[in-house]
């Protein structure tokens, strides 16, 4: 795989929660290198199976991205009103470039309050969603023709290779996770891993996890490892002690399988894979929470890619962490396949 190029393709494909089809097409195409057994379920999750025997282990990442959704088009001015769809951060939207996915893709700019209209005290306040609007440059008539309530909006994606294998990639939450699962499949491609691997790229994580819930019901795995992004330390974060480039984040949380978390740590040590531990006191805030309680319960682990600036257009990840995470997933699959043969 050409990791940077594949990451670029995944991160720049459009797929806001509930309408992931374009991102799904890219994910399917990349997945087809490893299996021809690929389907899309009723909610839009992409499911690919590799191998026919052995423990059924699901490797999961979510396919959807945060975005916005059109609520109205002003009849007089053509300004487009919208709300968020998923946890979009309103602080980074002033004068931001977006695309409205209407009857055709319409480029637009989100309004920004000029300084002369700002009281000094308001300079550091961002507008709430109901005061934001998108400026398409179209007449009201044209705007109404192409744009309708319910249309999704995405921030125009940025993809910039920074220093030290770090990449600024909008929507690497969680397309970098999708890439990680694909890379794990590549590592396992010519091994006798002894498992039936089900790769799941789930829809609708950012709006509550419906995709993972239904996909794991449909897949019925024995075990699962989810991969998502999590917080990496930055100058303005406090109490975050996990770092970019320091390896995969192995999560310990009450709802996850402690046994799996410990096994992942042992394997990372044994294979000399860079890792760091992350601990959640309650839920993990990822699809792992839903997968673990699917049907009669699924032993579930969670690996995270450390990320800066989550839920903004300048999310940063480190390619080394993707590799470490994929290596650890692959090591776990080989370990479980080996247990069967024992």
């Amino acid at each position: 795989m050409d990791m940077i190029n594949d990451l670029r393709r995944l991160c720049t494909a459009v797929g806001v929660s509930g309408n992931e089809s374009e991102a799904a097409a890219v994910a399917k195409e990349l997945l087809s290198q490893f299996t021809s057994d690929i389907r899309t379920d009723a909610l839009g999750s992409v499911i690919g199976t590799v191998g026919t025997t052995g423990p059924r282990i699901m490797l999961e990442a979510h396919l959807d991205q945060i975005g916005m959704i059109v609520t109205a088009v002003d009849e007089k001015t053509g300004f487009v009103r919208f709300d968020r769809c998923g946890g979009t951060d309103r602080r980074v939207l002033a004068a931001e470039r977006i695309t409205i996915h209407g009857e055709k893709d319409i480029p637009a700019v989100i309004i920004s309050t000029p300084p002369h209209l700002l009281d000094k005290a308001d300079e550091n306040k961002s507008l709430p969603f109901d005061k934001l609007a998108a400026d398409t440059g179209l007449s009201a008539e044209e705007a109404q023709k192409y744009i309708h309530p319910g249309d999704r909006i995405t921030v125009n994606p940025r993809f910039e290779v920074l220093r030290n294998d770090r990449v600024c990639a909008s929507f690497s939450d969680d397309r970098a996770g999708v890439l990680t699962v694909l890379r794990a499949l590549e590592i396992l491609q010519n091994t006798d891993h002894g498992c039936q691997i089900i790769a799941v790229f789930a829809s609708q994580e950012e709006t509550g996890g419906s995709g993972a819930k239904t996909a794991s019901f449909g897949v019925e795995p024995q075990e699962a490892i989810a991969v998502d992004v999590s917080f990496a330390a930055a100058p303005d974060t406090s109490d975050i002690h996990t770092h970019l480039g320091k390896g995969t984040m192995i999560c310990f949380a009450p709802g996850l399988s402690a046994d799996m978390s410990r096994t992942l740590v042992c394997l990372a040590k044994e294979k000399d894979i860079a890792y760091q531990c992350e601990v959640a006191g309650r839920s993990t805030g990822t699809d792992a929470d839903d997968i673990a309680i699917s049907r009669a319960g699924v032993k579930t682990g969670l690996l995270s890619l450390p990320q800066r600036n989550m839920h903004t257009g300048v999310e940063i990840i480190d390619m080394k962490d993707i590799e470490a995470t994929a290596q650890l997933m692959a090591a776990y699959i080989i370990h479980r396949g080996g247990q069967r043969n024992d």
Partner: peptide
């Protein structure tokens, strides 16, 4: 408001990111 979450460019092509603490 127009800086947070954007990228900037230096004359030598170096790109930098204006990060912000995640909303979470």
């Amino acid at each position: 408001g127009v800086l947070a979450g954007r990228t900037v460019r230096f004359a030598n092509g170096t790109v930098g990111v204006l990060g912000i603490k995640p909303i979470h």
